[in-house]
Each structure stands twice: as structure tokens, then as C-alpha cells.
Design a protein around this nucleic acid. Structure first.
Lengths: 224, 224
DNA sequence: TCAAAAGTGTTAGATTTACACCCATGA
DNA sequence: TCATGGGTGTAAATCTAACACTTTTGA
């Protein structure tokens, strides 16, 4: 196989942009790098791709390692491979973004890994090209969110319409008219009103809704 | 640097999906593989990423090697990295798509490389996961084409409105109403009518238009 | 003279946006 | 009783989609 051996191999890693939604803000999970080069700098969480491991599998493993969660919504952002992006060695990194409900993420495990939720609008400078990765992930996620019902992955199973609206506002970065928003929601049969009432955010209480995946699959027309 | 050395390196390659537009059809450039594994199968053109070469640079180099052209419109499609995608060894490949005007591509050079323009709607089975790459590239290109004036990269500098319409029809895969199309074009000041007339496609002759990048940059509102 | 492609406006329908008040409740 | 967030409909404006005939000219 001289065909392959005429060329050199490189390290390939995966970096994950984990989005969460809390208190009306879109957040990203970042931590202080615990190894050289770049020790102490803010950074995404990542890991190296093993020879016998697919890149998507690697991203899932990395995500599981960090959060203890599986079957999260995850998409590839793209490959980042400038020659000097990593100050130590030549490493090509493939970025993925994932959506999680912050309440599913065990606080203790989070502390163990030394990662924190940081508001997307006040991100510090990150290690290497990680800011670029986050920005591209955000662009892709925003786009996806307009045409696919993925936002629910950032919310608890039961949510109020105000929560859902705040989520869409946080992601798109602009205010939405309450009545127009609710009108559109009413047209989507897969966003089901339950009998349950949430009283944590108002005295009157707000109806709790749920995303019904089955109903969505039968008639997948989502538009926001 | 034991941190890196705890992990194995892999080969990384680049594969390019080159789109062209000819005789009303959207085409892709593919050729017969000239090496093992997969010798003789239809395949995208590609190359390995060198250790001292950025991945975008590698894609540009590969594109130049094949076409002799530089400064083409090019975007990354994403990384493909299933463990067994390459039947020979573990290779992660990063796909890019590029747009060229078929008339800029020297026929002789094309023959030397043994590549051909194939209609996107009658693509044969390709080597490895190359069909997947083409489909993803097409999706991305379609999307981009709706919001950015990149279609002109597939046409000669001077083109008729019918040509432009056929291009958009070929890319989107659906017919467009002629009057509505021309109405929208008229609103975009950066698509300039010239004094020139093309008589090759009709007896009456059709006005030739040109994309003015400067005007576009001053007021970039493209929508088709 | 006729076939073939170029060119040109109007109207109905659908979609989007803007906008303000009453309700229920716990403090 | 009042402050807070929950909930609701209508009308104007904009955008989108449908549609048919005249012009020019080379064969």
C-alpha cells in the first residue's frame, strides 16, 4: 500500500459545542484547559479520534464522557484544519454541536469536569480557534432551528409557551411578538397542550406543553 | 508531549465536488479511480492533506491540480470519517464543493485527468461514501444559492436571463415562472443589462447580463 | 410565413406584521 | 388591591403565485 504511505498521518480530534438554555439565555459549556499547551485557557471540551472509531462515534463518546448523557441531538459543524491552529502539534479538529436540557446535566459531574455554562453573548476568548467553532455552530443551529423542531431538546419535556418563546428569542437574538408566536404554535398539532399547570413563574399559572414526536413524524411541517 | 502521543494519527484526505452547468443541466466532475483500492470505480477527485498544509489550502491545491484554475468559489461540506469508509486503510476525508464555469476548464486537461461531467440526476454509484458527499454538497449549495449570488460562478461572465433561469431551475430542481423570475432580477441592481446581444440561442437575440460585484457589495440584498 | 425564443403587467390569494386589553392569582 | 405574567383576535400591508399575449428574426 505505498499509495497511502507516500503521505503522512496527522492527529484528528473532536471538539463539542454544547448548547443549553437557562433563565432565558442561550449558553455554551466551556472549561479551563487542564493540559499543555494552553493550560488554563477557556476551551471547548474535546478528545482525540481513535483509529478504530468513527468520528461521529468519537463525538458521542466525548459527549457521554463529559455529561453522562446519550442520544443527544448532535450535528457536525465542520473540520478545522489550519496548520497552526493547535500550538503544540498538527491537529485537525472536527467540531460538533449538541443540544441538552441543562437540568439533565448532573451538577456534580459538571463540577468534576470543571466546565461551566457561559452565556453565548458574553463568551470569553477561547483556546485556539474554538471561538470560530462556536460561531459556526451557532449559525448552523439557528438555521436548523427555523425548519426543524430541535428546540425542544433544550427544554424540559414539559414547558410553557413563554419558555418556548424565550428560547426562540435567545437563539435568534431578536424579540418575537407574543400573539403571532402563539398563533403559529397553535397550528402545529405536535405541540400539545397538557392539563398540567406550571405555577413557578407566575401567580396565575401557565399551561404546560409537550412535543409529540409521533404526531410530528406523521405530518412534519414545522415553521417558525 | 506525551499528551499527543497517547493517541494515534490517521490519514486525512480531501475530496472535491466540482459543480458545473452546461446545456441546462447541473453537472459534477467525476472520474475512474486509477489506484487501488477501488481501481476503475467512479470517484470524486481528491488528495491527501500534507502535514504542513491547511485543509482549505489542500482543497485549493487539489482543485488547481485538476483544473488549472484558482480563486474558485469553494466551501467545505464536512468531514466523513466512518471507520470503514475507505476499504484500504483508515482515512478521514474532508469534502469541499466548488463552482466552475465549464468553459473555463480546458478540455485537454480534463481528458488528461480522465474526468467527465456527469448530470447530477444520473450519477452512477461512486467509490466509498462519495455519493453521500455529493448529496450533502448539493444540499448545501442549494441552500447557499437562495441567499447569496454564487450562481454566477457557474455561468460565463455574460449570460442571458434565460440561462440564469435555467441554472436556478437545474439547481433547485423545479420550474420557475419566467415573468416572476425576471421581475425579481430587475430589482437587483447588481445584475446589469449590457448592450450586447446573444444570438446563439434564438433568432431574435437575447440581452446579455453581467453580475457586478462592486454594486452587490454596496447593497447586498439577494433573494431568489 | 411561420417557428422559436425573448420580453412584458396585473390581479387574487396567502402570509406576515403590528397592535391592546382582560384574566387569574398570590402577596 | 394590585402587581405580575398568561392568554386572546383583527385589520393593514406585504409578498407570492398564477396567468397570456406580442415581438423579432432567420430559415
Amino acid at each position: 500500500m505505498t499509495y497511502y504511505n507516500d503521505h503522512k498521518k496527522v492527529w484528528v480530534s473532536v471538539d463539542v459545542i454544547i448548547f443549553g438554555f437557562d433563565k432565558g439565555k442561550l449558553k455554551v459549556l466551556i472549561g479551563r484547559r487542564q493540559m499543555d499547551p494552553g493550560r488554563g485557557e477557556w476551551s471547548l471540551y474535546g478528545g482525540f479520534v481513535a483509529v478504530d472509531e468513527g468520528i461521529d462515534d468519537c463525538a458521542e463518546r466525548t459527549l457521554y464522557e463529559l455529561t453522562g448523557l446519550k442520544n443527544l441531538y448532535m450535528k457536525q459543524v465542520g473540520a478545522f484544519g489550519s496548520v497552526n491552529r493547535d500550538p503544540g502539534e498538527r491537529v485537525i479538529s472536527i467540531a460538533y454541536y449538541a443540544l441538552i436540557n441543562v437540568k439533565d446535566y448532573d451538577e456534580e459531574l459538571r463540577n468534576e469536569h470543571g466546565v461551566e455554562w457561559v452565556d453565548i453573548n458574553s463568551m470569553p476568548a477561547l483556546y485556539s480557534d474554538h471561538n470560530e467553532m462556536v460561531m459556526k455552530a451557532l449559525r448552523l443551529m439557528r438555521q436548523k432551528m427555523k425548519t426543524e423542531p430541535i428546540g425542544f431538546r433544550l427544554l424540559p419535556q414539559l414547558f410553557t409557551l413563554t419558555q418556548l418563546q424565550r428560547l426562540y428569542e435567545a437563539v435568534s437574538g431578536q424579540e418575537i411578538d407574543k400573539r403571532n408566536f402563539r398563533k403559529r404554535i397553535k397550528e402545529m398539532d405536535f405541540i400539545e397542550k397538557t392539563e398540567l399547570i406550571d405555577k413557578t413563574s407566575s401567580k396565575r399559572g401557565a399551561a404546560l406543553y409537550r412535543f409529540n414526536k409521533k404526531v410530528y413524524n406523521e405530518d412534519p411541517n414545522f415553521k417558525l
